[in-house]
């Protein structure tokens, strides 16, 4: 097991420093009686990108929403920077699968919306938004409306909005699933770069094993509903190779294969 190091979920070796987000024994039963999560425990170390990978309906979105403070857990607790989560806060920002942009507002207003809600005044928040619009490569589209943008560009707005909040933790729910493959690859590279420069913790939900292996520092494989962490995989890949060479690299391919064989048993 030298290609991808297996770590047991509880005794995470890198958790010497306090983790950015710590999920402790979270269970979630929806009012209808569906149990989405069962006693899940998982740490998210600072400055890393951790992917949540698991079969459809296993509770990934549920976990993200609980961390975001959008819905309460039935039991257990979530700590963000050692403080228990009770409701949404400035330390977390969400990137939505369906972008969740306001169609009546321009790219600028959408990007600055989180800051607008905080009550920051217009010139200040637009200066910040401007920077992130540039960072995600949307300069020149400040005054466009979402319906004038492609899916990929819309998600960039969603990303810029989350980044402009300057939160410690970014929660991303399948952010690239609604964009085409080329855009997706571009996004993945941008994301890797972002993780390096932004010093933030990214919690990233995806369906794609390749994507997870490519972008993640760590991958948490989740069991089917009610969900727990089945294993944590640290892809031992060398990003210096460049995206194309890396996708042919044997370490990369072996990790993909390993995850696939773990997941296959549930899919069948």
């Amino acid at each position: 097991m030298n290609l991808a190091e297996k770590i047991s979920p509880v005794n995470d070796t890198s958790a010497v420093e306090t983790p950015a987000v710590s999920v402790k024994g979270i269970s979630k039963v929806y009012p209808g009686g569906v149990q989405a999560l069962d006693n899940m425990t998982l740490d998210f170390p600072k400055g890393e990108l951790i992917s949540l990978l698991g079969p459809s309906g296993c509770g990934k979105t549920t976990l993200l929403k609980i961390i975001a403070g959008l819905i309460p857990a039935t039991s257990g607790e979530v700590l963000v920077n050692d403080k228990p989560v009770t409701r949404p806060g400035n330390d977390r920002a969400f990137v939505f699968q369906d972008f969740a942009l306001m169609p009546w507002a321009t790219v600028m207003r959408n990007t600055a919306f989180g800051l607008e809600l905080r009550g920051m005044d217009k010139s200040e928040r637009e200066a910040i938004a401007e920077k992130y619009i540039k960072d995600v490569g949307l300069s020149g589209f400040e005054h466009s409306y979402p319906h004038e943008l492609s899916g990929g560009m819309r998600q960039r707005v969603g990303l810029a909005r989350a980044l402009s909040m300057d939160a410690d933790v970014l929660l991303m729910d399948e952010p690239f699933s609604a964009v085409d493959e080329q855009t997706r690859r571009k996004f993945q590279e941008d994301l890797i770069r972002l993780v390096e420069v932004e010093k933030k913790t990214f919690i990233f939900v995806t369906h794609s094993i390749e994507e997870a292996v490519y972008v993640s520092d760590k991958i948490a494989l989740l069991l089917p509903r009610p969900s727990r962490v089945s294993e944590i995989i640290r892809p031992d890949i060398c990003r210096e190779l460049g995206p194309d060479a890396m996708r042919r690299d044997s370490a990369y391919l072996d990790t993909v294969e390993q995850i696939w064989s773990s997941l296959r048993s549930y899919v069948e």
Partner: peptide, 23 residues
């Protein structure tokens, strides 16, 4: 209204009045 738009507002800390008047 798409539920995610409402979640977005909640997530970014909108007060009741803010989500009423802005969303």
């Amino acid at each position: 209204i798409s539920p995610s738009l409402v979640e977005m507002a909640n997530c970014f800390g909108a007060s009741w009045w803010q989500s009423f008047s802005k969303i």
